[in-house]
Design a protein around this nucleic acid. Structure first.
Lengths: 150, 150
DNA sequence: CAAGATTGAGTGTTCAATCTTT
DNA sequence: AAAGATTGAACACTCAATCTTG
């Protein structure tokens, strides 16, 4: 993901009390970068890992539209992501015999393996983040964050 | 920016206590989307607004390398961003007489105006985020977030 | 050769237009 | 016509290779 959370502080504030908004965007950017870095060894990006993981959880091949819905993105994004995943040999497009408009993505065994590696990396990163705070602090942080997008 | 903070919860957790990491990434994504939306009226993306704002603060034209440093990104990114900004008529590339390797970006008056509009939109969004919490809560949130990337 | 900038290729994303099938 | 998928164009970003100047 993209990225892009840095600068543009319009009202110059003293480093210490800069806008909460840019702090959140900054921190998220750094955590995302760390995650992407951790994922490196599995050969996947977080976008690819996320898509593979939906497929793995679903058991049966999902249509590209279903993947777009789960991924909260536009259909054409999934078309292209699946292009690259197919190119990597991690998924295969299969036709739906009941409705010839739909194309489904099926995990290959290679895809399943890569997904397992990626999930381990993600879990590791999640634990590393959680470990920086006490359970109470984590709960407070989560509560406050949710208030911002309520 | 980019984006991409959604799914990929590997250890299936009960919606309520899902990973702090994905919560942060999700919230940041939503706030970024709101910001981009707010910025819409100025005709700028946050990437363009950020670059224009560095130029405005610097008074004198900055070299592309300086812009890359301030933006915390790779030089080629700025080359292309400035291409688009120049195409929009918001900046002009000027040569440095002292060192013919460097190219500087100079704000046009149109760029200065767009930047002013964008800054107003950003301030508005910053206030809107800050207003969701009490000052004490905001301080707590900031402190906890900083701990995560310490 | 170092540095500054650019170019080319690849990823991830959006939007608008198009094609196929219902 | 509406739904599912794809394509083409644009944006934002990275990396590796290249060109130009110091």
């Amino acid at each position: 993901m993209n990225k892009g959370a840095k600068g543009a502080p319009p009202a110059a504030e003293s480093e210490a009390d800069r806008s909460l908004l840019s702090l959140i965007l900054d921190v998220a950017d750094q955590l995302q970068a760390r995650l992407e870095n951790e994922l490196q060894r599995s050969g996947l990006s977080s976008a690819k890992a996320s898509t593979l993981n939906f497929l793995r959880e679903a058991k049966d091949p999902l249509s590209l539209g279903e993947l777009a819905a789960e991924n909260a993105c536009v259909r054409s994004n999934i078309t292209q992501l699946v292009d690259r995943l197919e190119n990597d040999g991690l998924v295969r497009r299969v036709s739906d015999p009941d409705d010839r408009r739909v194309r489904r993505a099926a995990l290959t065994s290679e895809g399943r393996k890569a997904c397992k590696d990626a999930c381990a990396a993600i879990s590791h990163q999640e634990k590393s983040v959680a470990a920086a705070l006490s359970p109470e602090e984590a709960a407070t942080l989560a509560r406050l964050l949710r208030r911002l997008v309520a």
